[in-house]
């Protein structure tokens, strides 16, 4: 009997916290410019590419990860831009066991955001 109540309490608390967060985020929203592809790729709430991919050509990275293939020579590796877009949209299609989040399918990034990331990654 205590359990459903506890879960509901936890969830409603979460909702409350989320609401608080959202209203304070909204206040700060207005003057902020749209993030660039690089900012999206670095942001750990957004693309967070560098959590798993090294970027040997990007001096700004501060990680030493080795989970996923390094992002380098991308234009040569993905001659078809749509393939790179598809990989970011839902990597589980090509590899069901992948650890890469399906950024498009799960709504982590919008279409516009994915396109910016693709443009950025393409230059690496």
């Amino acid at each position: 009997m205590g359990k459903p109540l506890a879960i509901v309490t936890a969830v409603s608390l979460g909702l409350l916290l989320a609401a608080t967060f959202i209203s304070s985020a909204r206040a700060a929203e207005a003057p902020k410019p749209e993030p660039t592809g690089q900012e999206l790729a670095f942001d750990n709430r957004k693309g967070n590419c560098l959590a798993c991919h090294a970027m040997p050509g990007e001096p700004k990275t501060v990680t030493n990860t080795n989970i996923a293939p390094p992002l380098i020579g991308m234009a040569a590796r993905f001659p078809d831009r749509r393939k790179l877009y598809g990989q970011i949209w839902d990597a589980t299609r090509a590899n069901p066991d992948t650890a890469m989040p399906p950024f498009g399918k799960n709504g982590i990034l919008t279409d516009t955001e994915i396109n910016k990331v693709v443009d950025y990654v393409y230059g690496l």
């Binding site: 879960i7 509901v8 979460g14 909702l15 409350l16 989320a18 609401a19 967060f21 959202i22």
Partner: peptide, 20 residues
């Protein structure tokens, strides 16, 4: 989704935004 133990935090916060 709660009953199925499958709720995402993103669904919960979007619902809170909708209710607000």
């Amino acid at each position: 989704a709660i009953a199925k133990k499958a709720l995402w935090t993103t669904a919960a916060s979007a619902l809170a935004q909708a209710q607000e």
